[in-house]
């Protein structure tokens, strides 16, 4: 009886989630499907999204992994505050995040106008897109990294240091390799999140258009007939990323040592 109730409730959610995913396949029957799919503006939007998502993931990796490590290894109030700060973008509606970014980096702000003086446009540019994507995607890297590093017994690091290797060498040769699968999973999530980012990007860089903004505009102008082929394309990219993430998280568990 209990299992039946649980299964029934679960089925409601599964159906709710599956129908839109399966429903998009109906666009395959459209006579204009290929023509709509290979429009230059859609291809360039997708290429831009892939490039900026990759750049954002790289920026998150370079700064987020060190932050995750520091959070995992320190019990100070400062690192607790840092943990809360990096989690805030997860709780903020993306549009609000975009407004906050625009307030600080927009062309009328001190930082924005100083950057413009150096020839850097922080809004309405690929750099603006990356800034928005890093803001929303960085928590995935920081929090995943912190969780993975916390699971690695510090005695592995002490063992390395007792063998004459310094902190930096220990991090690169022991800690990071042991954490690599978990961190990679966090980076994939960050990349997927960045790829699909809309709200903050709309505020910071409506142009050049990312694929999410392009599809939003397609729907506004031409309805679902115009938007669905691009939606299907982005879904395929997302599914491939998701499969990769599941493979890294599942079969490629980070090796935390004894008994594993």
């Amino acid at each position: 009886m209990f299992k039946g109730y649980m299964a029934a409730l679960a089925a409601v959610l599964l159906a709710f989630v599956s129908l839109p995913i399966l429903g998009v396949l109906s666009s395959l029957g459209s006579p204009d499907f290929l023509m709509v799919l290979f429009r230059p503006e859609l291809s360039s939007a997708l290429a831009l999204s892939l490039e900026t998502a990759t750049a954002s993931a790289a920026a998150c990796a370079a700064t987020g992994i060190p932050l995750g490590y520091l959070i995992s290894r320190s019990k100070s109030k400062a690192t607790e505050v840092a943990r809360i700060l990096v989690t805030i973008p997860l709780a903020l509606p993306p549009l609000i995040g975009g407004a906050l970014l625009l307030n600080v980096y927009g062309s009328a702000s001190p930082i924005g106008s100083a950057a413009r003086g150096l020839g850097l446009a922080l809004t309405q540019s690929p750099l603006g897109i990356v800034l928005a994507q890093v803001f929303v995607a960085s928590p995935f890297v920081v929090l995943t990294s912190a969780a993975v590093f916390e699971r690695i017994d510090r005695n592995y690091e002490y063992a390395s240091r007792m063998l004459g290797r310094g902190r930096g060498e220990t991090f690169l040769r022991v800690t990071l390799p042991m954490a690599k699968n978990g961190i990679a999973a966090g980076l994939v999530l960050a990349w997927v999140r960045a790829l699909g980012e809309f709200g903050a990007t709309v505020m910071m860089a409506y142009n050049p258009k990312t694929v999410s903004i392009q599809l939003w505009e397609d729907n506004a102008i031409g309805g679902l007939n115009l938007a669905l082929p691009g939606v299907l394309l982005v879904m395929v990219v997302s599914f491939v990323s998701l499969a990769f993430w599941m493979w890294i998280s599942g079969t490629g568990r980070e090796r935390t040592g004894w008994g594993v």
Partner: peptide
């Protein structure tokens, strides 16, 4: 230093 567990790098 030899710990209670070996802590070999996996």
């Amino acid at each position: 230093f030899i710990f209670q567990r070996p802590y070999l790098f996996p």
